[in-house]
Design a binder for these strands. Structure first.
Lengths: 111, 111
DNA sequence: GGTGATGAGTTTCCATTGGGTACTGTTGGC
DNA sequence: GCCAACAGTACCCAATGGAAACTCATCACC
């Protein structure tokens, strides 16, 4: 079994690092509803700064999870959408998000 | 629905940030097999430095996902174990890890 | 009684991220 | 000419991430 996230040199490690990330998990989840524009994502991912959103989206695009499509309109429109791979990745991330939401009350009050 | 990971101020956000993290996901998964010692975790989480492992474990402990038990032996023995909450958190993280492992071949070659 | 091993970390340092705020560029409407 | 909308950049500082070396306690060995 060459594909092991516990192996330091396995590319799995990089993928896990990409997906196991607050903003990636939220961004992919936001795109589950369909393509979204930069501004819309920025609104949905409350608290994200434009810079961090850009970096997050670029990384996801680079790894084939989302696509970035520019429309030559005015004002400029850019749409981000899930690739089939990205769509599949949403399932485990959705589990994680919903688990957190439904178990948040079990966590000790923050220190 | 007050518990929303997309809300910046919701404590869910902090929990997602804690769990959606490469080392947390791997550490919790390693503890699924039963209590582990520091050295054992260090070996299993290939490539982690002792400092980062310490920080990771302390954060998980602080948030009630694992326990840290010191045995007054020589040489010193310290065991980390999942709490019930931690055990429950393993399920979505395991999904994520196995999804990555079984879909890694679909990712484009790293840039 | 000094030497080394064991286990579980610290300490120090540097490079890489994360993140906030302000700014840019393009075009259209007022 | 001036402002607004959209999609980002640029610049800066603070917080992590991570490697390598060091610490501390105790025991076993020579």
């Amino acid at each position: 079994m060459p594909d092991d996230v516990y192996a330091a040199c396995c590319p799995c490690r990089d993928m896990l690092d990409l997906l196991a990330n607050k903003w990636s998990a939220l961004a992919l989840g936001a795109l589950e509803d369909g393509p979204q524009r930069f501004g819309s994502l920025r609104t949905r991912l409350q608290g994200i700064s434009p810079k961090v959103l850009t970096v997050t989206l670029r990384k996801l695009e680079e790894h084939g999870l989302i696509t970035r499509k520019v429309f030559a309109e005015v004002p400029l429109r850019v749409e981000y959408a899930l690739t089939p791979l990205g769509r599949d990745a949403c399932a485990p991330l959705a589990h994680l998000r919903t688990w957190v939401e439904s178990n948040i009350h079990r966590f000790p009050v923050s220190a």
